[in-house]
Amino acid sequence: MAMKLNPNKNVPEVDGLKNSAIIRKQLNDEESYFHMVMRRFFNHKLAVAGLIVFTLIILVAALAPVISPHDPNKIFGEFEAAPSSTHLLGTDPVGRDVMSRLVYGAQVSISVGIGAVAIYVVIGIVLGLIAGYFGKWADMIIMRITDVFMSFPYFMVILVLVSIIGPSLFNITFVIGLLGWPAIARLVRGSVLSIKEMDYVKAGVALGYSTPKILFQHILPNALAPILVNATFGVASAIIMEASLSFLGMGVRPPAASWGNMLTQAESITVLSSQPWLWIPPGLMILLAVLSINFIGDGLRDAIESQNAK
């Protein structure tokens, strides 16, 4: 049987046909794993709704210069003007158009969310692969460092670090990325520990493949599903974190527009009670963005987990 599965073997014509049928079936099976996850995901109504909303927010961020009614930093004559046809959401205390700032704020949230998670997923994967695959002292050291990083209350350390190296869009992304990896590293390490005992990995070792090839081509693809789910929720939490930091004045700073720093004005009780157009729209945008990503993550988790349970 093993011979038949090898398409390169020189076998009679009839067997060759049979072989290609077997290979085709295997390919179909493989494809259907992906398809099944996709189908389950797209049957999840909230997840699809989340995907649509999040895609729209990304489009707004990407097309900000085209969509935005005004220059977000242009100062108009009227301060704190109520919503009108020229300024759909009014103007802020400096006289800038709130709608335009809202549109440009999407760029900040999306880039911190995706940028920070991209950084820590890479760090987490590399450290997790090393710890899980090599074991022994490498595992010991990496896991103790993970413990140390996990012992700090996440938001507090990010707040302190950002305030020390200076608040800016790049620094927030960098700091969240630098501190977010421990959960991913643990996840990857756990998957690697079970995957490395699989026959196909042992076969790879026996065939003399290089260690990086085994790690990244044979082990990693089989550990991707839980990473994807974790990373999706991570984007939501990074967006909340940026908004909170900017709200506290330790994030993206004016004049640059961020949904979080637009809410800072509402700490004044006059703005809060008599100019709701200044703070409710950016707050709702944060809620909408985070909610849509959490729905996507939930749908992904359901799709992947029920697949694994079968």
């Binding site: 908004a243 809410l263 509402a266 703070w279 707050g283 959490n294 939930d298």
Partner: peptide
């Protein structure tokens, strides 16, 4: 529950 985990504390607080 989705609202609870998604809403930023400062926005809910101001609300």
């Amino acid at each position: 529950s989705f609202f609870g985990i998604s809403v930023p504390h400062f926005f809910l607080g101001l609300g």
